[in-house]
Simulated assay, not measured.
Amino acid sequence: MKKIAIQGVKGCFHHAAVSKYFEGCNYKLMECSSFREVAISVSESNVDIGVMAIENSIAGTILTNYSLLSEYNLKIVGEVYMPIQHHLMAYPYPGQNIKDIKEIYSHPMAILQCELFIDTHPYIKISEYSDTAAAAKYISICRKKGLAAIASENAAKEYGLEIISKNIQTITSNFTRFFIIKNCYKQKNDYFNKASLIFKILHTTGSLSQILSLISSIGINMTKIQSIPIIQRPWEYSFYVDIIFNNMKDYEKMKKRIQKIPCLHQLSIMGEYQNGRITS
């Protein structure tokens, strides 16, 4: 049975990502209070796998999680994209509705994704919580009228709460991308068509352009480019790039040719895995 570390508690979106990616598999969840705890658990082999959110289609990239992957030398071995639907839920008091709610608890990211709904109820106090499902669990324990949480439908079922308002996220098409991570010494995937790379380049004019132009010229598709601050070196950055390819020979050609570019200081491969995004 696989042991999988997630940030949050049962009913959270990380739990949903695990359920989707590992459907049909036996696993045991390890609930972690922070992303750093997830990274440490994976790096020290206390668990087999970690699942970590990396970006949201509304709120953007979680830069600190890139730093954790590098700091603990972890590898990306898979990804999963999850639709995120936020609901307002409370303890099931008869007749309780949105007008009765005085305070809402949720994770800062969920609060950000529901700004329009929150702005239409300015009389409600907003309190940040460590995790959406943990906020739902807290409301369930309190059993207090007037308190509510923003979380998933699974969280409402897990903790016996009633959904007062459904789908309150500002943008209907809301997705979060999750990385599946392992200790770097574990065996890598046999088949992959996507890779996550980090470039450290010399700070010269056109250096980044040279790297990106080479990748493009080989016919490899870049799906994400993200600058990442280098810790303790203010205003200097590494560049994170996701690439997708259909031909493994093109990928190997790119790696060989890119090493010959004078401005490249260091190339690190964060992960090689299968593209998790289903496109129509």
Rank of each mutant, 00 (worst) to 15 (best):
Q7S: 07
V9W: 09
V9A: 14
A17T: 04
F22S: 11
F22W: 15
C25H: 13
A39R: 07
I40C: 06
E44H: 08
S45A: 09
V51A: 00
I62R: 13
I62G: 04
N65V: 00
S67W: 00
S70F: 08
S70T: 15
E71V: 04
N73C: 11
L74M: 07
I84Q: 05
H87M: 01
H87I: 00
L88V: 05
M89A: 06
Y105G: 05
L112W: 05
P122I: 01
P122N: 00
I124F: 08
K125R: 11
A133Y: 02
I141P: 00
K145G: 02
L147I: 10
A148R: 03
A151I: 03
A155D: 04
I168H: 02
T170W: 00
T172L: 12
T172M: 11
F175G: 00
R177F: 05
F179M: 09
F179P: 00
I181V: 09
K182D: 04
N183W: 03
K188G: 10
Y191D: 15
N193Y: 01
F199Q: 03
T205A: 08
G206K: 07
I215A: 11
I215Y: 10
S216D: 05
Q232R: 11
R233Q: 15
Y240Q: 06
I243F: 05
I243V: 14
Y251C: 01
K255R: 12
K256V: 14
R257Q: 12
I258N: 06
L267C: 01
I269W: 00
M270H: 06
M270I: 14
E272L: 09
E272M: 11
E272K: 13
Y273M: 03
G276H: 07
R277M: 09
